[in-house]
Amino acid sequence: MEKIKIINGNKEYKKNNEKIKILENINLNFNSNVFYAILGESGIGKTTLLNIIGTLDNLTDGKLFIDNIDISTLKDDEKAHLRMEKIGFIFQDFYLNPYMTLEENIMQPMFINEKYNKKMILDKTNELIELMGLSHRKKHFPKELSGGEQQRVAIARALANEPDIILADEPTGNLNKENEIKIFEILKDLSKNGKCVITVSHSDRVKDFADVIFKFKEGNIEIDENK
């Protein structure tokens, strides 16, 4: 099923009166049940693209549809609600709240979900902690966890509101080989279970897991046929 569609997407930044083109007339589709990987050089615009898909940034020109909703017609609060409902984010440096325990970090997005009551929040949190194999670390703070464990907390947090779309920006950038494989396996499982997973990566190992690979080059994005 088609989840995300970008039509004639353009993105440029202005820096000292000089325009930098990041995206130039790109057309992309992302579907459910697929694990996408986006590869490309540093500074080419991968994070920018993820932020646009995640409704944290806007296209300069063109249209973005998520579940057939034209994002450009939404107000800030409506975009926020859509993010809560449909999108889970994972970052390279985990981006956990250092002053919250593992449990509290995972709960944080759930408090604004009107579908959950207090008990459901606790149940869902426990379910996710178990799923990520972190039951013995519930009350620990992020700095007391290993990198791999922290990223699993971040994944659990991204899944908190049961989104259909997972956006991961170099999720394994700070991890060793074993942890990297583990994280890619989790993401792969998520896509098999119906989610649309889009990950940006510098690692070649992602090719072993991803279903579709996009190569990002100077404003254009093309499918890597070698896959």
């Binding site: 995640g54 944290l56 800030d76 609060d77 926020a80 609600h81 859509l82 993010r83 809560m84 409902e85 999108i87 984010f89 981006y95 709240n97 944080q108 997005p109 604004i112 509101n161």
Partner: peptide, 16 residues
């Protein structure tokens, strides 16, 4: 600011 950024990413409204 980091926590505020996170809340924004999670979809907290400005008012919240």
């Amino acid at each position: 600011r980091e926590n505020i950024k996170l809340l924004k990413i999670f979809g907290y409204r400005k008012k919240q």
